[in-house]
Design a protein around this nucleic acid. Structure first.
Lengths: 137, 137
DNA sequence: CCTTGCTTTAGATCCTGTCCAAGGTAGGGT
DNA sequence: ACCCTACCTTGGACAGGATCTAAAGCAAGG
């Protein structure tokens, strides 16, 4: 994730302690934190960081394609740093926890042109829902 | 949709003017209204109907499997009366409008067991994103 | 090291949706 | 036909998530 910050700096992003901490928090596999969770973890390293900055930074990272924003049925959005390898999500309908998954098959191709209704279709998102091991039983 | 009301009444649902109006509003193909839109349209026929009742009724209908609740990226949820024929959605990333689509292929089967992470997977939802004819250009 | 313009901040504000207590009413029972 | 009562509806308060604002702060090029 440090490469990320360098890359963004070269594209004119000002490098601040806050942005560094947010980027550090968003590191790893199967990381799907809500904005508030990001804020809480960032605040452990930088106690004065504000919620607004976390939201701003996340919005920027999403906008620049470095982080994926995943909506989860009315709950708080989650942020996924694994934006460069395409994947989908498996969502626990009880607790809202998520895992990254990679289904087989070409999903975009599964939509026949007759079903496009004149849209320029550019993206598919698949959400599998179920109950996670922790919530089962 | 009148069958719907009869069916529900037989299952012990009390039939009120408000519920009738909400059911009437939610009729047709490619209908994906937000709760507030449902309320606005219902109020044209029944001016005193309250937002709370619309939310309650929608929640009930979803719970009984008669209406589908579709989340759309942090915007207001939309309600889809076409719950009995399985289908997916094509969402305009500009204006949020939707169409029903029926992709080919068995999407649940596309998730290999190795990717289940111990979840009991029961549902797949596919969202195609693109730009609708009205927003293009 | 100074200046400029981008960033951060706290708090107000917005939007969606839920909760509450009080009054209203569908429809089974008589 | 009319009561009763449990279920419904209502408006307003409330809660959570996210955005906006104006003022103060600070990165980094000159």
């Amino acid at each position: 994730m440090s490469d990320l910050l360098e890359r963004l700096r070269e594209r004119g992003w000002r490098l601040t302690a806050q942005r560094r901490v947010v980027a550090e928090v968003l590191d790893g596999d199967h990381v799907h934190l809500t904005a508030d969770e990001v804020h809480a973890r960032a605040a452990r390293r930088l106690p004065e960081i504000s919620r607004a900055t976390v939201y701003n930074t996340l919005r920027e990272l999403v906008h620049r394609g470095e982080v994926l924003e995943v909506s989860t049925d009315g709950r708080a959005k989650r942020y996924d740093p694994n934006a460069h390898r395409p994947h989908h999500h498996l969502l626990c309908s009880r607790c809202g926890s998520m895992r990254d998954v990679r289904p087989t098959g070409d999903l975009l191709a599964d939509l026949p042109p007759s079903q496009s209704f004149g849209f320029t279709v550019s993206e598919v998102e698949v959400t599998y829902r179920g109950v996670c091991p922790d919530c089962a039983g």
